[in-house]
Amino acid sequence: NQASVVANTLIPINTALTLVMMRSEVVTPVGIPAEDIPRLVSMTVNRAVPLGTTLMPDMVKGYA
């Protein structure tokens, strides 16, 4: 099973992502692959992402 990116904290809308905000976890449904974490750093989220939420491609500006 592939690990996905999961919010390690509440990420407010329009926040630039940092490494400490994200962790990898095997979850269903599958979200952004964990190997993309380095690429996500400094990208911003377009909605509030609660703790434990899987990051989906449409949640990160410029990812999809």
Rank of each mutant, 00 (worst) to 15 (best):
N1C: 05
N1H: 11
N1S: 14
Q2P: 14
Q2I: 15
A3P: 09
A3L: 10
S4I: 02
S4D: 01
V5C: 04
V5Y: 01
V5F: 02
V6K: 03
V6H: 01
V6D: 01
V6P: 01
A7I: 04
A7S: 09
A7T: 10
N8W: 04
L10Q: 12
L10G: 11
L10D: 11
I11G: 00
I11P: 02
I11M: 04
P12H: 12
P12W: 03
P12R: 10
I13W: 06
I13P: 12
I13Q: 09
N14H: 15
N14K: 07
N14Y: 14
N14E: 09
N14I: 03
T15H: 13
T15N: 04
T15Y: 08
T15Q: 09
A16Q: 15
A16K: 10
A16C: 07
A16V: 14
A16I: 11
L17K: 00
L17V: 04
L17S: 00
L17N: 01
T18Y: 03
T18H: 07
L19Q: 11
L19H: 13
L19I: 09
L19V: 14
L19P: 14
V20M: 15
V20K: 11
V20P: 14
V20C: 06
V20E: 15
V20Q: 15
M21D: 06
M21Q: 08
M22G: 01
M22Y: 02
M22N: 00
M22R: 00
M22K: 00
M22T: 02
R23A: 07
R23G: 07
R23I: 10
R23F: 04
R23C: 04
S24H: 12
S24Q: 12
S24T: 13
S24V: 13
E25M: 05
E25P: 01
E25L: 04
V26N: 07
V26A: 10
V26L: 14
V26E: 15
V26R: 03
V27W: 03
V27N: 03
T28R: 03
T28H: 07
T28M: 12
T28N: 09
T28V: 14
T28C: 15
P29H: 04
P29N: 06
P29F: 03
P29Y: 04
G31S: 02
G31P: 02
G31D: 00
G31L: 02
P33C: 06
P33K: 06
P33I: 14
A34W: 06
A34D: 08
A34Q: 11
A34H: 06
A34E: 09
E35M: 07
E35K: 06
D36N: 12
D36G: 05
D36Q: 09
I37Y: 03
I37K: 14
P38T: 10
P38K: 10
R39V: 07
L40G: 00
L40V: 09
L40N: 00
V41C: 04
V41K: 06
S42H: 12
S42R: 12
S42G: 14
M43P: 01
M43H: 11
M43Y: 07
M43W: 06
T44W: 11
T44L: 13
T44G: 05
T44I: 15
T44C: 10
V45F: 00
V45T: 06
V45G: 01
V45H: 01
N46T: 10
N46F: 10
N46V: 12
N46A: 10
N46Y: 06
N46D: 12
R47H: 15
R47P: 03
R47F: 15
R47N: 07
A48R: 10
V49S: 02
P50Q: 09
P50H: 15
P50K: 12
P50M: 07
P50F: 11
P50T: 10
L51Y: 15
L51T: 13
L51S: 13
L51N: 13
L51Q: 13
T53N: 13
T53H: 15
T53C: 09
T54N: 02
L55T: 02
L55K: 00
L55S: 00
L55F: 08
L55Y: 00
M56L: 13
M56S: 08
M56T: 15
M56A: 08
P57R: 09
P57D: 07
P57K: 09
D58V: 07
D58P: 06
M59L: 08
M59D: 13
M59R: 03
V60P: 00
V60T: 02
K61V: 11
K61Y: 13
K61T: 15
K61A: 14
G62V: 04
G62K: 07
G62E: 09
Y63L: 07
Y63D: 03
Y63C: 05
A64C: 13
A64Q: 15
A64L: 11
